[in-house]
Structure formats: C-alpha cells, structure tokens
Simulated assay, not measured.
Amino acid sequence: MNPVVLGLGVGVALLALLVLIFYVIAPPAPRVARDRRLAPGVEHVSALTRVTQRTTAAIESVASKRSSRMFGPQELELAGIKTDPSSFVVIVASAASVFALIGVLVGFANGTWFIWAVLLALLAPVGAKLIISSRTSKRRARFADQVDDTVQLVAGSLRAGHGLNRSLAGVASDAEDPTSEELARVVNEVRLGRNLSDSLAITAQRMRSEDFEWVAQAIAINQETGGNLAEVLDQVGKTIRDRNEIRRQVRALSAEGRLSAIVLVALPILVFLFLVIVQPTYFSSFFQNPLGIVALIVAGVLLVIGSIWTALTVRVKF
C-alpha cells in the first residue's frame, strides 16, 4: 500500500476524532445564548442530539437490568467524572470505532487489518478503565492529603461555638475538592436522617482513608461518651500530620523506582507502535506465522506480569 495513501487515511481518521471531541462531545459555547436565539416556548433539538439521547436511553434500559456494569455511576463518581454512565459508554464506543478505523488503515497493506482493528478497538474500554482507575487513585490521594487540614478546620469551628453539623457544613463550603464534595454528601445524608457517625464511616471506606476513619471513630466515641471534641480532633490531627509527613518522605524516596518501572513498561510498547507505523512490514512475519503469533502472545503476557511485578515492588505499604 502506498505510504502516502496510508498517511492520508490516518490523518482523516485523526481529523474525525478531533471533530468528534470538539464538536460533538465538547462543542464550543455559542456566542449568543440559546434562549436568546430561540422563540419563547420553542426548544430546538438537533438530529444528532436526538440520536444521542435515544442511544443513551437504549443503553440505560439495557444496563439497568444488569446487576453489574462496566462503567457504573459509583465508579464514575469516585473518579470525579460528572458524565452519566450511558453517555460515557457512548463516548467509549465512539473512541473504539475511531481506533478500529485506524487499525483497518494500518493493517490494510499486509492483510492484518482485522487483527489491528480488534486490538485498537479494545484500547478504548481498556484505556477508559485505566483513566477511571488513575483519576480515582489521584482523587483519593488528594483527599488523604487534605484530611489534616479538614480536621483542623473542624476543630477551629467547634472552638468558635458552632455545632458539629454546622462545622462540617462550613468546611464543606470552604474546603477544596474532593473534601468539599465528600463532606457535602455527608451533610446532605445527615439532613435526610442518616446517623453522622455512619455517614462518616461510609465516606472513609469509600475513599479508603485510614486517617479519616480515625476521625469518624473519634467523633462516634465522643457522641457516646461526651467530652471536648475540639481537643480530641487536635490530637487526631497532629497524628495525621505526622503520618502524612512520613508518607510524603517515603513517596519521595520511591519516586526513582516508580519512574524506572514506567520506563521499562512503556518502552517496548512505544517501540512496537513506532516500528508498526514507520515500517508496517517489519512485524508482518509474526502475524503470518503461528509461532510468531504465539511469541507475541507470550511477550504480552510477560509484559503484563512484569508490569504487575514492578508495580508491587515500588509500592510501599504504609
């Protein structure tokens, strides 16, 4: 296949992806508000919007009958993604279609277009899972770093004479994300009748924060036994600050190992993709020979095992 035609096809596919992202998923804001451009009482719905709404409704009706979902609402909420699950599935499916088209163009010259289409299409859901997992981990890490400041703010508000619920509401309005979102959720649950201690314990479990679990236990014990809650939170906050200091020091000392693990895992993948794009016939013998296919599968399995091994090696249990 002519490299010029191949490059043109890849360029068209990338252009289609950009159009999908910037004009369908995240279109630019109009210069004039929609309510000023429409007649009173008239709501304009484009054909693309109607198709998208019907698609998301169909996906939602099918997914609601299943007990487990690939991209559930709680999973997206933990990752800080405001999109509803059905719309997120549509986005992932659109990305998979574009990647499959790129795979067809890449493998059309040597007859391996089907394999490339399937492999690249699988990158969309796998990549979405990795993005959600990464965003969830970062969000939980930010929450853990903000616990000591949160405890200090709550203790200061209690000393000022506010009640515990009012103190939590004030911190929820003044703190940064994700602490503000989680505390606002706690405040709303308490207003709906849930016990404060239970709501705080559930938040600690959801964010996987041992430090916040200590805070929840301290508040629960204080509600049963009484006493000066501000002084108790001061002691808990001091312990949490000391733990965070040690945790940051350990993270700094293990940064070199994490970077080495990322380079070792990403290097063979990037070299493989580079050679496939620059010299498509370089790996054609692997796909045409059963032994070559087995070798690629074994290499992929070893790469996965090595990634898990290095991840467990550089992860410090604290």
Rank of each mutant, 00 (worst) to 15 (best):
residue 1 M to F: 15
residue 2 N to T: 09
residue 10 V to R: 08
residue 13 A to S: 00
residue 15 L to Y: 13
residue 16 A to W: 10
residue 22 F to D: 02
residue 26 A to P: 07
residue 28 P to E: 00
residue 33 A to M: 10
residue 34 R to P: 06
residue 39 A to H: 04
residue 42 V to P: 00
residue 47 A to K: 06
residue 53 Q to N: 12
residue 54 R to K: 12
residue 59 I to L: 15
residue 60 E to Y: 15
residue 63 A to L: 14
residue 73 P to N: 13
residue 75 E to S: 12
residue 77 E to W: 15
residue 78 L to H: 09
residue 80 G to E: 01
residue 87 S to F: 08
residue 90 V to Y: 07
residue 98 V to I: 13
residue 105 L to M: 13
residue 119 L to S: 10
residue 127 G to Q: 09
residue 131 I to F: 07
residue 132 I to Y: 06
residue 141 A to C: 07
residue 144 A to I: 11
residue 148 D to L: 03
residue 150 T to D: 02
residue 159 R to Q: 07
residue 160 A to K: 04
residue 160 A to Q: 12
residue 171 V to E: 06
residue 173 S to P: 07
residue 180 S to A: 11
residue 187 V to C: 01
residue 189 E to V: 01
residue 196 L to D: 02
residue 202 I to C: 05
residue 209 S to Q: 05
residue 209 S to Y: 00
residue 213 E to L: 02
residue 219 I to W: 06
residue 220 A to Q: 10
residue 226 G to Q: 00
residue 227 G to C: 04
residue 229 L to N: 02
residue 234 D to L: 14
residue 234 D to S: 03
residue 242 D to V: 07
residue 242 D to K: 06
residue 248 R to C: 02
residue 254 S to T: 14
residue 264 L to T: 07
residue 268 P to N: 08
residue 269 I to E: 03
residue 269 I to R: 13
residue 272 F to L: 06
residue 275 L to G: 00
residue 278 V to I: 11
residue 290 P to S: 11
residue 290 P to T: 04
residue 291 L to Y: 15
residue 295 A to Q: 14
residue 300 G to M: 13
residue 301 V to C: 11
residue 302 L to N: 08
residue 304 V to M: 15
residue 312 L to W: 15
